[in-house]
Amino acid sequence: MFSNMIIGRYMPGDSWIHRLDARTKLVLSTAFIFVVFFANNVIGYALAGAFTLLAITMTGLGVGVFLRGLRPLVLLMFITTLLQLFFVQTGDVLVHWAFIKITTDGVINSVIVFVRFMLIIMFSTILTLTTQPLAVADGMESLLKPFKKFGLPVSELALMLSIALRFVPTLMDEAQSIMNAQRARGVRFNEGSLMARIKSFVPLLIPLFVNAIKRAIELGDAMEARGYRGGDQRTKYRVLTWHTRDTIAIIAFVIFTVALIATRWMM
């Protein structure tokens, strides 16, 4: 059941995008979410689309992987688009049947929302597919460093995040084997009524929880035994290094942003 989740999974590679600093990718994918709103006509969206497609092509992973990544979100996208279709009531009326009224503005708006949604998801998927989760954690720590001054335990949070990430595959395996053991004892997951389904997860969740606590206690011992006591005297083995390609990526993105703003006057 855990095997079909592709979204958010790191896919190893050696492309230019893979090698970009995590901070660059974090900042740019966040910036993209806002920048995309500058597009207000066909040319703007075409430009944003082309830029996204270029970035995707450069990952060397193939567009197919990204499209598959969209699959779990299809329902969400569909609903949002429909809402636009029904709630925007200005413009010429195209269909009027009982209480349903679809207008030209509604159609245009829903198309825009759909395209924007897709672009944002595709662009953030570039971050998760080409960056090791650990590097994302490191990047976040580095970007959040200024907040240390305000008492935010940035290093501790980053260590917690990196340990949590490191345990994801371990706990997934464990969940799978507990599930197998309970199925062998006659539990039927994903069968029957909603109540029955919820109940069937109790024999999975309790052992998973108990074992996770046991692991946490052992890990705590292991960390203490190796001298962990938190605080600021810790040094860091892993450092992020800024390369020319990161500067290039940022410049390219700035040019894209300026161009996107310019498209607003093109129609």
Partner: peptide
């Protein structure tokens, strides 16, 4: 070195794990 190999691995990679104890002691990079 403890019994369960999974529950004592702190680092997200092999090198990070080996470095962990030294990070705790403030060893220069």
């Amino acid at each position: 070195v403890f019994q369960n190999p999974d529950n004592q691995f702190v680092g997200a990679t092999v090198a990070d794990d080996v470095a962990f104890g030294m990070e705790n002691r403030g060893v220069p990079r």
